[in-house]
């Protein structure tokens, strides 16, 4: 999600800044050509300087990049500090054993990602530092080796998220199809900022990279942590519109479940809207050599 932040949050500013730079250069060039024969006047310099200053101000105005759900370092808080006791639940301890059994016994540390994922599901969608320490203990490595992994992957949340963590795809195809409006609608509807949890603790909105649903863009993902690691789901809702995401949120708020997939009633999965327009008949087999003739 680090790169997420760069992608969508700052893109407009960067784009506009570079656009103005280009226009400045061409403008400057024409100005230079126009005034080539005359001597450089101080007014000219002042004008250029003022322009440049405005531009610099523009660059500085860009918002501070908001990183995924957390900083790259830990700050102790009452619900997230190394002194808190954290353990895998009994059911999950079995799963831990099973996960570790999939790796050679001398490469236990390979299980770090599935174990972190399991810990995250158990802990309501986020990893406190004590959970990472517990994982380090299980796989017998220094805690820092687990922190390295957990900070690298943006799918590991290191601050609190809602029971339903809504992730809006922000990659180009979805962005072209209006993912920004969807995100804005979600944030406005829930009354939160990005990666902030609603007051009732139900929702948080994040951003993510391409999930490969570009044919059904735009899409959102709902990570459902409301039932621990047993009832954990990670569903895609595709072809969403600003109206539809609000409806989805309301459905989830009522505690109902919603079948995943495309939200456009006129589409079947990733098929074209309103049914097929080509390839309507039975496909003709490719021409084949008559083997019997040989």
């Amino acid at each position: 999600m680090i790169s997420n932040g760069l992608n969508s949050a700052t893109y407009p500013e960067i784009v506009s800044a570079s656009a103005s730079q280009i226009s400045l250069s061409t403008e400057l060039r024409s100005l230079l050509l126009a005034e080539l024969n005359s001597s450089w006047s101080s007014t000219m310099l002042a004008r250029l300087a003022a322009q440049r200053l405005a531009e610099i101000r523009q660059v500085f105005r860009q918002p501070i990049r908001s990183f995924s759900t957390a900083l790259n370092y830990h700050i102790d808080s009452p619900d997230n500090n190394p002194d808190l006791l954290w353990e895998f639940s009994d059911a999950n301890k079995e799963k831990v054993k099973e996960i570790i059994s999939q790796y050679p016994s001398n490469y236990k540390q390979s299980a770090v990602i599935p174990l972190l994922d399991l810990a995250q599901q158990q802990h309501g969608g986020w990893l406190p530092v004590s959970a990472m320490n517990a994982v380090a203990k299980v796989i017998e490595v220094a805690p820092i080796r687990v922190y390295e992994v957990a900070t690298f992957y943006s799918m590991f949340n290191r601050t609190k998220v809602g029971k339903y963590h809504l992730l809006v795809c922000g990659t180009t195809p979805c962005m072209i199809r209006g993912s920004r409006e969807i995100k804005d609608t979600l944030l406005k509807h829930l009354g939160v900022k990005r990666n902030e949890v609603t007051k009732d603790g139900l929702f948080s909105v994040g951003e993510m990279e391409c999930m490969g649903c570009c044919v059904n863009a735009p899409m959102i993902t709902v990570a459902d942590y409301s039932n621990g690691s047993e009832g954990y789901t990670y569903n895609y809702y595709e072809d969403v519109t600003p109206q539809r995401v609000v409806e989805i949120v309301e459905i989830l708020k009522r505690g109902e479940k919603l079948p995943p997939g495309t939200q456009n009633p006129r589409r079947i999965r990733s098929g074209p809207e309103g049914g097929n327009t080509t390839l309507l008949g039975e496909p003709k087999p490719p021409p084949c050599r008559d083997l019997d003739a040989c």
Binding site: I2, S3, L6, F67, N72, Y73, H74, D76, P82, V129, V141, A142, P143, I144, R145, Y147, E148, T151, F152
Partner: peptide, 20 residues
């Protein structure tokens, strides 16, 4: 002493101990 590590990724990458 396994205290130092490489945290984050991409342009946000930094050396640190994560916990103080």
């Amino acid at each position: 002493v396994q205290d130092l590590g490489m945290l984050g990724r991409g342009s946000g990458e930094e050396i640190g101990t994560y916990v103080e």
